[in-house]
Design a protein around this nucleic acid. Sequence first.
DNA 1: TATGTTGTTCTCGTTTCGAGAACATTTTTC
DNA 2: GAAAAATGTTCTCGAAACGAGAACAACATA
Lengths: 112, 112
Amino acid sequence: MLKRLSELRKKKNWSMQETADRLGIAKSTYAGYESGYRMPSIQALADIADLYETTVDYILDREVEKLLKFELNELLASEEHVLILDHSPLTVEELRDFIAFTRVKRELKKDL
Amino acid sequence: MLKRLSELRKKKNWSMQETADRLGIAKSTYAGYESGYRMPSIQALADIADLYETTVDYILDREVEKLLKFELNELLASEEHVLILDHSPLTVEELRDFIAFTRVKRELKKDL
DNA sequence: TATGTTGTTCTCGTTTCGAGAACATTTTTC
DNA sequence: GAAAAATGTTCTCGAAACGAGAACAACATA
């Protein structure tokens, strides 16, 4: 049951018809999603997330916070630029330096 | 086509059979997802995300920059321990030091 | 060699999706 | 205030797709 849809649509001030038109589906189809009468296909679900400028996980009302924990080592390995500082992505080098930097600091703290 | 599934499963070192068992579905069903022969139901998709400890958006290979990119400044403000190093969450202090550290380094690099 | 595991693809029965139609309400227009 | 249009809801029906099982080749294991 996709209870987020109604609030997302109202935030845009759209009728079901208008939403359906933008998605290229019948209004009864879209109404079915909001009422819980039907579930969209995965493609339709992705289209809806795009239209509402949100994530699929949000529409599905899934908890993602606990999933958003990043082990810096893994981050380094993945080579994806997930961390940003002052609007500029962190380079692998910067991240590597930071890891070394912090490890040393932690070691030093141990001896206090 | 859910190309992320294969890599997620291999990261766990599971066979398709094992994954299917954990999901409570037939292995042919799961194999269908990986091969692109079938798409899972939305419920099955959510179950898979839970099993792999990831997000639905990641499995769908959707751009979720807003979600998966972190500006370190904002991270500092939120005071949530999102970053982890060597199984130990990064303290606010460590993060603050790193930001200063990296800014200085970037400044120095500018003058080369 | 024989046995078990792994991954792939087909068929079949069932589920369920998506559209259209019909309807009651509400809103707009004249 | 009446007519017309828009809105949201729910039903039916045909088509599409799902999920399981079976059968298979490729590979590993005992």
